[in-house]
Computed example of a mutant assay.
Amino acid sequence: MSLEILRAVPKEPELAAMAAQRPPLLFVHGAFCGAWIWEEHFLPFFADRGWEACAVSLRGHGRSGNRDDLDRYGMSDFIADVGQAMADLRRPAVLVGHSMGGMVVQKVMDAPPPGAPRPVGVVLMASLSPWGLWPTSTFMMTARPDLLREIAMIQLVGPEAATPAGMKAAMLSDHADPRDAERWYALMQPESRLATVQLSWLVPPLPTVLPESRPPVLVLGAERDVFVPPAVVEATACYYKADALRIFPDTAHAMMLEPHWHEVAEYLETWLMRFDRRR
């Protein structure tokens, strides 16, 4: 499978030497998005701090694969895509998964695809919980039924059924610039119907690896997330016995695009320093 992988690497020799002593970072996007969601802020931020930062577009997303076949791609395909990207890095990586991408990362953490090295660390950002979409759908049915209807229309009709205002309400806080919301809205796309069905009927997975053999896990959430509310984030952290949990105040679902995205990035980097072999 031909995958789009965006890469940001340190340009200065000193920073490149730092990156060589650290694991690469592989960012995995969520539903309706692609690797582009990490490109504006997070990839350059971490490259400038001495990390090799990469983001993969899952097949049918962004510039990966054939978008016309999107609806026949399921979770096993997305897991294989992350495994392929991990193998291409040639070094064990830290996986960072957002929303649906967080579920893909959870599955890779417990059972890496053939040929992929085990991740050395895992970060779940506003991630779906181990119980799939049902906690998210239940919350939205009561808190934001209007957004739930709009998401359903995107699936049935396509991105043209959405609106920049709806996208902003779903993904971003009131602090986000409406012009940025319109620009990002233009990059949104439908999501795989097969993957959505699989995530909607997912049963709580039994751990495939003993908890003590898992890599360190960081769980991040957003106070104003209308998809994955803090209570679901906290349940995920408890399930995986996370190494650390942080809920960012006054922040919405697309944490990497929010005006104060750098607060999330800086906290993440502080946690990542445990993997710097120079320390």
Rank of each mutant, 00 (worst) to 15 (best):
residue 100 M to N: 11
residue 188 M to V: 03
residue 98 H to V: 12
residue 16 A to H: 13
residue 93 A to H: 10
residue 136 T to L: 14
residue 271 W to L: 08
residue 82 V to P: 01
residue 153 M to V: 08
residue 6 L to E: 15
residue 67 R to K: 11
residue 243 D to H: 10
residue 144 R to K: 05
residue 269 E to H: 06
residue 233 V to R: 07
residue 254 A to V: 07
residue 203 V to H: 14
residue 110 D to L: 05
residue 235 A to E: 05
residue 75 M to P: 00
residue 88 D to S: 11
residue 132 G to V: 01
residue 42 F to I: 13
residue 61 H to G: 00
residue 108 V to D: 14
residue 137 S to F: 15
residue 225 D to Q: 09
residue 157 V to D: 10
residue 265 A to S: 00
residue 135 P to Y: 03
residue 171 M to F: 15
residue 272 L to H: 00
residue 5 I to M: 13
residue 264 V to M: 00
residue 135 P to V: 08
residue 92 P to M: 04
residue 129 S to N: 03
residue 71 D to T: 03
residue 230 P to W: 10
residue 153 M to C: 12
residue 20 A to H: 01
residue 149 R to Q: 15
residue 85 A to N: 14
residue 161 A to N: 04
residue 263 E to L: 13
residue 72 R to L: 13
residue 255 M to Q: 13
residue 103 M to F: 15
residue 244 A to P: 00
residue 17 A to N: 13
residue 271 W to S: 08
residue 239 Y to H: 11
residue 229 P to L: 02
residue 37 I to R: 07
residue 180 D to I: 09
residue 101 G to A: 08
residue 123 V to P: 04
residue 260 H to W: 12
residue 152 A to Q: 12
residue 217 V to E: 00
residue 226 V to R: 12
residue 229 P to M: 02
residue 144 R to S: 06
residue 25 L to Q: 11
residue 1 M to H: 10
residue 85 A to M: 02
residue 190 P to D: 10
residue 131 W to F: 04
residue 133 L to C: 08
residue 138 T to P: 01
residue 248 F to M: 14
residue 39 E to M: 11
residue 188 M to W: 04
residue 152 A to W: 04
residue 274 R to F: 00
residue 134 W to T: 13
residue 29 H to Q: 12
residue 173 S to R: 08
residue 237 A to Y: 04
residue 176 A to D: 09
residue 191 E to W: 06
residue 134 W to V: 09
residue 131 W to G: 05
residue 257 L to P: 03
residue 141 M to L: 10
residue 101 G to D: 09
residue 40 E to V: 14
residue 214 R to I: 07
residue 61 H to D: 08
residue 84 Q to R: 14
residue 89 L to Q: 07
residue 124 L to N: 01
residue 148 L to D: 02
residue 177 D to P: 01
residue 273 M to Q: 10
residue 145 P to T: 06
residue 9 V to K: 12
residue 32 F to R: 06
residue 84 Q to G: 10
residue 231 A to G: 01
residue 60 G to D: 00
residue 201 W to S: 12
residue 102 G to R: 06
residue 257 L to R: 02
residue 224 R to P: 03
residue 28 V to L: 04
residue 120 V to Y: 02
residue 39 E to T: 04
residue 89 L to G: 06
residue 131 W to I: 14
residue 230 P to V: 09
residue 155 Q to P: 08
residue 81 D to W: 15
residue 22 R to K: 00
residue 26 L to Q: 06
residue 108 V to H: 12
residue 160 E to C: 03
residue 61 H to Y: 08
residue 203 V to A: 12
residue 255 M to S: 00
residue 230 P to Y: 08
residue 29 H to A: 15
residue 181 A to Q: 01
residue 53 A to R: 08
residue 255 M to A: 07
residue 43 L to Q: 14
residue 120 V to Q: 02
residue 57 S to Q: 03
residue 80 A to R: 14
residue 211 P to Y: 02
residue 202 L to F: 02
residue 186 A to G: 01
residue 205 P to C: 01
residue 156 L to R: 14
residue 14 E to R: 05
